[in-house]
């Protein structure tokens, strides 16, 4: 049993920006209940330095929390040339929408593309299934 197991995995506060991905969108057209849609949707793209801070490896799962809601998704290195520590990217999907607050200040427009979350390693946990989000 390693000593690391007794340490709580570090938490990281990040800003999420959502985006569109044609491969994920095409998978949705085929079926949102297929594995492929989950594989292309339930991901968070992180700056390599944020991956280090979370003490995780590319491809491992993380818990993403926002208020009372949370989902488990796969962490990936974003691959952007520019550094973006503190900002992570999620493709527009039920997984990202699960984390968006309904606090719109009466405008009718939720903050789909810019919201705060807390991310933590979920080592060994499975990605939240689409039907488990609810």
């Amino acid at each position: 049993m390693g000593f690391g197991q007794f340490l709580a995995a570090p938490e990281l506060k990040l800003t999420i920006v959502t985006y569109r991905d044609i491969f994920q969108n095409s998978a949705l057209e085929v079926s949102r209940f297929d594995e492929k849609y989950e594989e292309l949707s339930a991901i968070i793209k992180l700056d390599p330095n944020d991956i280090s801070k979370l003490v995780i490896k590319d491809g491992e799962t993380v818990t993403v929390k926002s208020g009372a809601e949370k989902v488990v998704v796969k962490a990936q290195i974003s691959g952007y040339e520019e550094k973006h520590e503190g900002v992570a990217y999620m493709v527009n999907s039920p997984w990202s929408n699960a984390l968006i607050s309904d606090n719109t200040h009466g405008t009718g427009v939720p903050s789909f593309k810019n919201f705060e979350v807390v991310v933590q390693s979920a080592k060994g946990e499975k990605v939240t299934g689409i039907k488990e989000i609810f």
Partner: peptide, 26 residues
Amino acid sequence: LSSLPLPVARYLADIPLIDIDPCQNL
């Protein structure tokens, strides 16, 4: 239910709901 923030989507799921679509969805 896929595209709205979860808190409002949850309320929608609780009320009498009719869905017309070619495909199965959430």
